[in-house]
Amino acid sequence: MKRWGITLSAVALCGALLYVLLQGFGRNPHEVPFMLSGKPAPSFTLRALDSGKAVSLEQFRGRPVVINFWASWCGPCRMEHPVLEWGAREFGGQAQFLGIVFEDTEDNARQFLQQLGASFPQLIDPRSRVSVDYGVAGVPETYFVDANGVILGKHVGPIDPQSLANRIRELSASGTAATTARP
């Protein structure tokens, strides 16, 4: 009887440890969880890279916003930029595209945009306050904020045209759902 107790508790302990290990191995350790989905997007006012004017998130209230965090030193951002340029041209009527420069010098960022195009506003984030406020865990990352200022989700890594189009569709759907819900 006593021996059974010991055996059972050992089995239970091993089972619990196995469960912990399975949880750990079943997950990509490089993946940082994202907790701001469905939460209001943190507000910001940042300086535009080209004009130097202040741009805030509030001024786009009522329109979906796509925010891309990037840097000139990031290789994948270089690959991704043409997709965003295309997206801003293609979906510019449905959503406002914004770029936020992460941990970079203004000269490098300007040079990057000269080479790859700047068809949507690019903002400078001193000391990466806004990036940390948004829970950025590396560049590139693209956030999708609906017309009511709620974060629908983010795309980690360089975005492809198909995912971008799908996300824009979700944004539009969420916007219309919100407007029809409002009397």
Binding site: P29, V32, E103, R127, S128, R129, S131, V132, D133, V136, A137, G138
Partner: peptide
């Protein structure tokens, strides 16, 4: 630190960690 392997933001030299530590300071 978000971009490191099990290193705290106080110990990492990564720019992301520095930005996060700046936020703690703020």
């Amino acid at each position: 630190c978000a971009v490191c392997q099990g290193v705290s933001i106080a110990d990492s030299p990564a720019s992301m960690a520095r930005a996060q530590l700046d936020m703690v300071r703020e």
